[in-house]
Write a protein that binds this DNA or RNA. Sequence first.
DNA 1: GAGTTTGAAACT
DNA 2: CAGTTTCAAACTC
Length: 796
Amino acid sequence: MFTMSLNKNQGSRTVVEPVALGSQTLSDTELSSLTLTHSGEQYAANDYETLANIEAELECMNAEEVMTTEEENSTIIEVNNENDALLSDVVLTDGQQQERVPSTTSVQIKPNVSHTQSQSIMIVSPAAGGGASQILKISHPASASANQLQSLAQSLITGKSPDGNIVQIRSTPSNKQNIAAKTSGNITLGNVQNVKTVQSVSGKRTSHNVQQNRNVYTKMILTNTQPQTGQQVLIASSPENQQGQTIKFLSSGSSNLNMNSPTKTITFAQAQQMGLLPSNKVQHILPSSQKQTGIIVNKLVQSTSAQPAKLTIVPNSAVKSPTKILPAPATGSTKSGNSQTGSLSSTSKVMHQNPQKVIIRQSSLKSGVVHNNNPIIRIPANQTIGTNQVHQLQVPGRQVQYVRLVSTPSSGTSNVVTVGKTKTPTALQTVGVTQKISGQQQIVKVVPLNTGSQTLRTVAPKSALSGNSQRLIIPATTQIGNQSKNNTVTIPASALSQLTSGQAVISTNSNVGNIVVLPAQYLQQQTDDSKHKSQQSTPTLLNNSQGLIGNSSSLSESKMSRSFNNSETNGIRPRKPCNCTKSQCLKLYCDCFANGEFCHMCNCNNCSNNLGNEEERQRAIKSCLERNPNAFRPKIGKGRDTGEDIRRHNKGCNCKRSGCLKNYCECYEAKIPCSENCKCVGCRNVEESTLHKKSLKDLAEAVEVRTAQLSLNKVKMQQMSDATFRPPAISNTGARQPFNFLTDKVVEMTCQCLMAQAEEAERNMFDDETSEKLIIEEFGRCLKEIIESAHKAEAT
DNA sequence: GAGTTTGAAACT
DNA sequence: CAGTTTCAAACTC
C-alpha cells in the first residue's frame, strides 16, 4: 500500500490535483506507502487547454489501456478533506454519482503486483508563484505498458481552472466503477480512472489575478527505470508559452515504446528561463527497485514549510562502489573548505536560491556540476565521503557554509548525513547515508559547520538507539545507465520536515542509508544578519565518538534556552559572539565551545576554537569529557514530574547571592525554576505554584545561612581579636561575654525557631510579606533572648 | 565602556 | 570532595 497525500498550499488556487501516485513492486505482504505533498499549484485557464492537448496526445499514445489491477488486489484512494474551501469545487463524477474531492487528497494504492521488477512514473508539476512543485514517482510492475503508465498518471490528474471548472486531464471510460470516494472513503484504482472532467459547481472564480497565472508550469515525467521498457514523458505547459509546450519522451535505455509524438526537451534551466519553472520545492521521487527484499514504505509527509529545503539523494545501484560525495563544482563561486585530512572532500553549497538540493550520487557525474537554476550538489562515484572533514563552500551572494562529514562508527546501520541549509527559514534536513568502503559499511554524517544563519542540532538516529523508530524505506533503484537521471531519489524537504525526530528513511539500496530527520525545533536560523552578526559559525564541534551528538538535541540547552529567550518572534536564534580572552575558547567558559560551535565573528582573543586548531580543539574536548562525560550534554533536560514534562537543570545551580533571579543563574537564564538539583541559597526562582511555599523555606534557609555566617563571623572576629586582644570569656565580674552565648547549639536552636515560624506561616497560608515579617520577628525574638540570657548571665 | 559582581568551570 | 582560583558573562554605574 502506498499513500499519497496531496496538499494544496494555503492560499493557492489549486487547480490540478496531484499526481501522486506510487506503487511498488510488492509481494502480497509488502507494502509501500507514500505521502506526497501537493501544494500551491496554480494553473491558468490556458493550462487546461494545454493539458487538454496533452491529454489528447497522451490519449493517442495510450492504447486504450488502463492500468488494471488484479481483482483480488485492493487499490485504495483515500480522500482526506482537509481543506474544503479549496476543494469544494472539485467534483468527481461517474454517471449519476458525484463526489466532492477535497483539496487535500490522500491516495492510497495497494496494488498486488507479483512482479519482481518495477517501473516508475515520475510526475513533475512544479507550480509558479511560490507554489509547490512535485515530482511524483509511480512504481509499478514491469509488465505495465507505457500506455498503462500514461493512463495511470493521467488518471490522477485533476485540474480546476481559475474560473472554477474542473479539468480532468484524462478522459476515462464511463463504464467503470463508481467512485466511492468520500471524505475519507476509498476508491479503487478503477475508480480513479473514472474521474472525469466536470464543471465546477460554483464556477465563479473568475477574478483571479492574471499575474497569478503566470509561470504556471506543469510537467509530468513518466519514467521507466527499466531501460528495456522504460521511457520518459515530460509534459510542460505554460500559459505564457503555449507554443512552447513541450512533450518529451525520453527513452532511458532501449525503450520498447512506440512514441509517435514529436519529442521536445525542456530542461529545468530552460523552464526557468521561460518562466515556467519557479525555483520551488523539493520534488518527490521514489525510485523503484529492481530487487526489493523488504517491506517498502514510501512515506512523504505533507509539508508545512513554505519553502522547504531541497534534498536529493541519488542512490547508485552499483552497490559495490562506496558512496561518494563529489566536491563542489570548481566554479568560481565555490570556495574550497578547510579540510582537515584533505584526502576526501565533500561539499555543501549555499545556493543562490532558497531551494537547495544536495545530491549524493554515485554515478559518474561530472564533478561539480551545479545548475544555477537548480542548484544541486552532486557527489559522484569517484569520491568517497571523508569523515571528520570540514568543507567550506560559498556561493556568490550567500554566506559561507561549512559542512563537516562526521563518521559515526557506532551507529550500526543508522547513518546520518546532515546537510546545512542557507539562511532562509527553510527546514534543515538531516539525511543519513551509508557508504560502503571495502565492503564494510561506514556511516557518514554531513554536518553544517558554519552556516552563519542557523544552528544545527544533530540528533542521533533513533533507529540505532531503539527499535521504535519509524523507518521509511525507499526502494532502491538499479541503475542501468550511469547517467540516468531516473535513479534520482529525491526526498522532499517538505516531507522530511514532517517526519518526526529520528524517523528514518531507509533505502533498499545499500548505498543509501537511513535518513534521520531533524525536527524543526532543532533548527534555528538566523535571517537578520544586519541585526546580528551574520555568518556566525554554528558548527558541530564534536563528532559522536563520544556519543554526544547522538542523543543531544543540544549540546548546551541552557545556552540554547538563552538564545530562545533572545529569539525574535520568528524563532530565529541570534547567537552572541564570545569574548573569551584567556581560555582560547577551548574551555567550557566559552559559550561557543560549550555549544559545540566554532567561533566565528567573535570577539575572542587567541581563539583556538576554529578549523585551524582542530587538533588542539579535539584535545580540549577530550579533556572536558574526561572531567565531565556529560560536559557537552544538554544541561537542561526533561524530568518526569507528576506525569508532566518539566524542563529542569540536570545539574542544578549553586547561586548564593543572586537569589536565582538574575541571569547569573543558569536556571533562571533558561527560564526554568530551580529544582531539587539546585544547591542555591535563598532561591527565589521557583514556580508560581510553589513560590509561596518555597520562598518561605528559602527565606528560613537564608536566615539560617545568614545566622550561621554571623556566628561564624563572630567566631572569626573572636579569633582575630584573640590575636591582639582576647577578651576574657568571663568578664571581670565573672560574667560570660555575650558572644560566648552564641554557641552552635544556640544558633541551631535559633534556626529551628525560624524554620518553625516559617512552617507555621505556611500552614496558616500567610502571604509572603506577612510570613517574612513573622520570621524576622521571630529572629528578633531569638536575638533578644540571647541578649537577655547574656545579661542574666552577666548579672548573676 | 570601565569596573564590579556573579557563579560555573577549572584547579588544587 | 571541598575549598580555591580562574574565567567570562551579567550587571552596574
